[in-house]
Every structure is written in structure tokens, then in C-alpha cells.
Amino acid sequence: MVALDMTTDTVPGDAAVAQHKMTTRNVNVYYGAKQAIKDVSIDIDMDNVTAFIGPSGCGKSTFLRTLNRMNDTVASARVTGEITLDGEDIYASSMDVVQLRARVGMVFQKPNPFPKSIYDNIAYGPRIHGLATSKADLDVIVESSLRRAGLWDEVKDRLRDSGTALSGGQQQRLCIGRAIAVEPEVILMDEPCSALDPIATAKIEELIHALRGRYAIVIVTHNMQQAARVSQRTAFFHLGDLVEYGVTTDIFTNPREERTKDYITGRYG
């Protein structure tokens, strides 16, 4: 049984990883006077899907949004501490936020395709980031992104149809394809399945499994079974604290912290 070193919130064995894809150190987030995240230090690696779990209002989504500076768009939000991507401080003044969000993509709770064709939903990002120089290049990117998103076979004959005409599950995979199209390194998913039925959910989970290793994936979920199914590392947040971070199997069979145990066994008041 591995013992967790809670002083750094790293998982034993991860020390062998030469460099973490993302690290956070002593991160605090405030909304005005209210502190939403308290002193969170965590490492995120390429090889693992990392799940953030916790009750509503625990700060897990807030924390996820610090990882690509989505909180910048909230006027009252203030972030302190250090967050790095490949060792580079993402809150440094030299960091290009648009570029950062291409490298650290995001998929939201409600599928939000652009009111454009399926093709243009995927092609939009590569176009504005200058990843394609010709129509042929763009076609290749659209096809490979839709294939990786597990959607190609379902939409290849109707790429000109509106993205919003797809089913909810297909729309969500389209959004994942859109994030993939700009060649991100990290994909953040904020409750990606909460608006989907179980079959569409299973397809997203299968997709997460297929994408693992190619991208560092962080998923926020209310569904503990989903966290158990898709992730290799799980972080439990409660009232802005990172209570426990560890190997998913350990968290769900033998959590160290009482608060984690009470939450995952359904004893949370």
C-alpha cells in the first residue's frame, strides 16, 4: 500500500516522471473577498486521466478553470500561487493567453458547438491559429480530429450540416474534436457528460480512454462512478481544500481521509 505524501500532494511513483505536464503550487483563488480555493498543490501528467471530484461548491470547477486561465474572464476572480505548463508559468505576463488556451483546451458541461457547419466547427481553430495553409490541409485536420473524437463515421456524409443539428452526445464529441483540432497538450473537461444519456456518456468515456496518453486529460465530474471508470488519479476537493489526491483505485477502495471516505460512500451530510 502506498502512503501519500500530503505535503506536496504528489502520488508516489510519479517522482520517476521526468517532468510533470502541469504543476500547481500553493494556488489560492478568490472571488472578491470569498476564498474558493485554498493552497492547492497538485501535479498533472500526460499518462494519466485526472479526475476532480467533490460536492457542489467545493471549488473543483474553479480550480480546473485556473489551469487555462478561464477565470481571467471573471472580473472579481483573483489567483495567487504558481501554475506551470511544461515548467512555464502560465500566469506570467509573457504568456499569450490565446495560445495557452489552444494548448490547454476545454470542453464544457453543455455541448456548445458554434452555429456553423460540422466542418467549420472543427476548422475554426486551425484557421485562426494558422495550422493549415490550404484547403487540403484543413480537410486532413477536420477528418483526423473527427476520427479521434469518434465522430467521423457518423458525420462524414454531412459535414456541411449544422453542428447544432447533431444529438447531444454527438455535439459533445464535436466539441472534443474542436478542442483536439488545434493540437492541444492538455484537455480540461468540466462535467462533459452531465447533459448526456448513458449511451452517449459511455461513448465519451470510451473516447477519454482512447485519448489518454496523447493528451493530459483532467475531468471534473459529479459522477463518482465515472471518475472511477475513466481516471487513474483522483483528487477530492471539499470547501476549497484539496483533501486527498491519489491513485484512483486507492481513493475508491481505501481512502486515507475521513472526509473522502464519507463523500464517496455517500455519507456526506
Partner: peptide, 9 residues
Amino acid sequence: RAPMANDLR
């Protein structure tokens, strides 16, 4: 019930 942790054990 999908028991977890000590419940599962």
C-alpha cells in the same frame, strides 16, 4: 448501491 471504500470492503 455501488458501494465504495469501507462499504465495498
